[in-house]
Amino acid sequence: MSESLKILEFHYQNRTFTALEKHKAGVPVIGYTSNTVPIELIETAGFYPTLVDANITDFKGSDQYMEPVFDQRTKSIFHEILSGKWSFLNTLIIPRTSEAEHKLYLYLMEVKRLTNNPNIPEIYFFDLLHTQNPLSEAYGFEQMNLLDVFLRNQQKAIFSKENITTPYHLPIHLSNQIKNHLNQLAVYRYQSLLTGVEAMTIIGAMYFMDRKDYIQNLEIVLLEISVRKPMKNSQKLLVKGNCINHTDFHESLEKDGNIVVAEDDWWGSRAGGSLIEISENPLKNLFDKYYFHSPSPRVFPMKKAHEWLQNEILKGVDLVEFYLNKDDDVLGWEKFWVKELLG
């Protein structure tokens, strides 16, 4: 394994490492819980954005508040926030990517109200809707503007004597560079140059690293992958279902020689995709990307939600595998359409 791949793997596994380093160095850190928060706005305001993620199984203490039917990731995040692991965050931004996140917001606010738990940071709820219609679009753009105002106010409160403002286009440019590289990685996956486990690690590290460091390492890793010989494999699989913040499922699928070439998931293939336009109105450009192109269980109608999948299966996928949490009550319904899509 190359040094750069080791670095990406380290950050994929040590998810608070960079955020804590930044915090210790005096850089204020803002956490967010999923893919529909425009991290470019956080960077523009001078904060370090980090994905808040956790994957634990012992919920003692927090299980008095959160019922066991929540998915493991949501329960884990809730538990770790209450227990203080994320108390260094300046702010936690929770978007409405899923209803579970809306509930996470309400539960955290309620524990804070009832107990004054000092571990819970300031929380901002980003109410970006995902129904695709002009009303939701207008509402969402208003929410995007409000988030920007909130971050600017946070910026003023923290950096009163410094001018740390970054022009909007720099973080957007960085995002586009990363997306270009991830799109190249996606091509390599179909050429069987890397496993799904490797791909998940390489992509997932992005959420837990300084993005400039991430690009440097990603570029080296891509070069290394590009000269590999294709692996022999029996079937090319695409994974659909709940979001996957680990590699266990991919390992189980690939142990018999199959290869996972794509995921309908922001932890996997959907982290790349179309680039963000750069114009005189960067907020609108960001909004367009996050509103029209982000995967979310709340995207409606289903035809829109399945556009990506419909295109992807044309690339040579042999089988679609469903990943469903044991308590899933949402994505299981989609088997109905996927069967139809696949004929």
Binding site: E99, A100, T131, R298, F300, M302, D329, V330, F336, W337
Partner: peptide
Amino acid sequence: RLTCDCIQRIFEI
């Protein structure tokens, strides 16, 4: 009303 994430799926099917 799209409250729970399953509603849109149930009603669309």
